[in-house]
């Protein structure tokens, strides 16, 4: 009825779902830095270290998607 195929719907859901998930992880990182009272340098280390780990997680998705398509 709306002209959207199941594949398009899944693609849309995956794109926004992963984005929302990443934003949620970013929120967790900020909370972790705040609640652990890590201080300014601790916050920097947590954000950089876990941020790079998160970037690897996203990169894995993207590389798989490129190889599959």
């Amino acid at each position: 009825m709306s002209g959207i195929t199941e594949e398009q719907f899944a693609q849309f859901g995956l794109t926004f779902g992963v984005t929302a998930f990443m934003l949620y992880m970013l929120f967790i990182l900020l909370q972790l830095a705040r609640e652990s009272k890590a201080g300014r340098f601790g916050t920097f280390v947590i954000l950089l270290g876990l941020g790079l780990g998160m970037m690897g997680f996203v990169a894995k998705f993207v590389i798989k998607w490129i190889l599959d398509s």
């Binding site: 280390v45 950089l48 270290g49 790079l52 780990g53 970037m55 690897g56 894995k60």
Partner: peptide, 13 residues
């Protein structure tokens, strides 16, 4: 891979 990047980030900080 994530662990490798995370460790790299922690050491690079």
């Amino acid at each position: 891979f994530e662990g490798w990047l995370l460790l790299g980030g922690l050491l690079a900080a």
